[in-house]
Write a protein that binds this DNA or RNA. Structure first.
Length: 405
RNA sequence: GGAGAGGUUCCCGAGCUGGCCAAAGGGGGCAGACUGUAAAUCUGCUGGCGAUGCCUUCGGUGGUUCAAAUCCACCCCUCUCCA
């Protein structure tokens, strides 16, 4: 593949590249030497579920491996024990080895829904970090200074606000940088929030006599709340293992103004087409709802196939546009002990027994807010008693349903 | 080691001259209305309990008091300045 085309694949959709010139040189040299570039992507296995946010760099990796480069998927099993302080301005709790190992296992399994397993090297950074001696660690630490560390956004902020910074947290960038040394990475990928860590890799590689890696930074994908970075702990994520209907629904929940970004970062829709969608939204010739439905369909198709996507869309239309019921309402057996001597259930009890409300208080609230309907009749009296029957349909809000078995 | 400032409900953050505090305000979440969708907007709710009352909660443990997030003692943790 010729140089310009390669550059295009590398650069497309990136937020920042340090530096394009170096990348070009590396590509030219690699081509001459007949070897692929070694591209590193490190992940922190703190949450075992991969979501769309993770897929942004992963999809890039996929494209790179398709044009013949060597992709290295690095599981930060060792760094995970520290927890990267990035993003949330507080110390993340350290994970146990066992947890990490389990997370990593499920992580890699999911990653291969995107990457080609035959063309991917999976590495664990405990392989080289765990055996380091204290003396070597000190040597590594001596390669940077506190002032430099404090340049990092997160540290600077916390320092300024007099919030705690653990000394061990300084090791996170050092370790990640050392990973690049150990892997002899030509290119490292990451979100824009990884800039500091990626640059640390360059510095350390130079210190250890290697050519510095090129840093490819990709945009950060906001979660379905439209504000914060997509993350499982914030509960604003769309997981790639989410069932089709949920994936579709969650996508429909993203704010309108994020649609185009999603198209660009997490779908295979060609750029030209995305541009015309954006144009259509702008001039009002396209309905935002329809565009978002298209987006939801694209995303579901990617992870569950087009058939599932069509079904998810039909179900969504039925439930939310026509107010019909979903097909897969869970059927739940009502425990006998909630019945009184007349064989009736108190409505509050009913909702908690069916797990539709977490507590009696919540159930009362829902009832008084008019969120509860039984057999399609809205019930607002929290003292109501009912005679249960098989197939009784209990509904709380728009999304919580149960049927009596 | 010394001096000072802090640790509040899911999060941020008031309260801290003792009762009116299940604890202001914001965020998030949930619900209702509306709609173009689980978007946007507006409104309400947001510890638990068969409940106009009771129970548990304000870093931890004890104590004072009829009554403590609020006062006292000790302890743990964070930050600042000094060493």
């Amino acid at each position: 593949m010729d140089l310009e085309k390669q550059m295009e694949v590398f650069l497309r959709g990136t937020a920042e590249v340090i530096s394009p010139e170096e990348l070009r040189e590396k590509l030219v040299r690699a081509d001459k030497e007949g070897r692929p570039l070694r591209v590193k992507l490190g992940v922190d296995p703190s949450a075992p579920d991969i979501h769309l946010g993770h897929t942004v760099p992963l999809r890039k990796m996929r494209q790179l491996q398709e044009i013949g480069h060597q992709v290295i998927f690095l599981v930060g099993d060792f760094t995970g024990r520290i927890g990267d302080p990035t993003g949330r301005s507080e110390t993340r709790k350290q994970l146990s080895e066992e947890q990490i190992r389990e997370n990593a296992k499920s992580y890699t399994a999911q990653v291969f829904k995107i990457l080609d397993p035959k063309k991917t090297i999976v590495e664990y950074n405990s392989r080289w970090l765990a055996p380091l001696t204290f003396a070597e660690v000190v040597q590594l630490a001596a390669k940077t200074t506190v002032a430099r560390m404090l340049e990092r956004d997160d540290f600077a902020k916390r320092f300024k606000e007099n919030r705690p910074i653990g000394v061990h947290e300084f090791f996170y960038p050092l370790m990640q940088g050392y990973d690049s040394v150990a892997l002899r990475a030509d290119v490292e990928m990451g979100g824009t929030d990884q800039k500091f860590n990626l640059l640390m890799g360059r510095q350390l590689q130079r210190e250890y006599g290697q050519e510095p890696q090129v840093c490819l930074m990709l945009p950060i994908l906001e979660g379905i709340d439209g504000v914060q970075k997509m993350s499982k702990s914030l509960g604003n994520h769309i997981g790639i293992d989410d069932p089709p209907a949920e994936m579709y629904g969650k996508t429909m929940a993203i704010p309108d103004n994020l649609m185009i970004k999603y198209f660009e970062l997490v779908t295979d829709v060609p750029l030209a087409e995305i541009r015309s969608l954006a144009q259509g939204l702008q001039d009002g010739s396209l309905h935002p709802r329809d565009v978002k439905m298209r987006l939801a369909r694209e995303i579901v198709t990617l992870y569950h196939g087009s058939q599932a996507a069509i079904e998810a869309e039909e179900a969504f239309k039925a439930v939310f546009q026509q107010g019909e019921l979903p097909d897969n309402i869970p059927e739940i057996e009502l425990p006998a002990e909630v019945l009184d001597e007349n064989g009736e259930v108190w409505i509050v009890r009913l909702l908690t027994a069916l797990d539709l409300c977490a507590s009696g208080s919540e159930a009362r609230r829902m009832i008084s807010q008019g969120a509860v309907s039984i057999d399609n009749v809205r019930r607002t009296d929290p003292e109501l008693k009912l005679k249960p029957h098989r197939g009784m349909l209990v509904r709380v809000g728009k999304r919580r349903f149960a049927k009596l078995a």
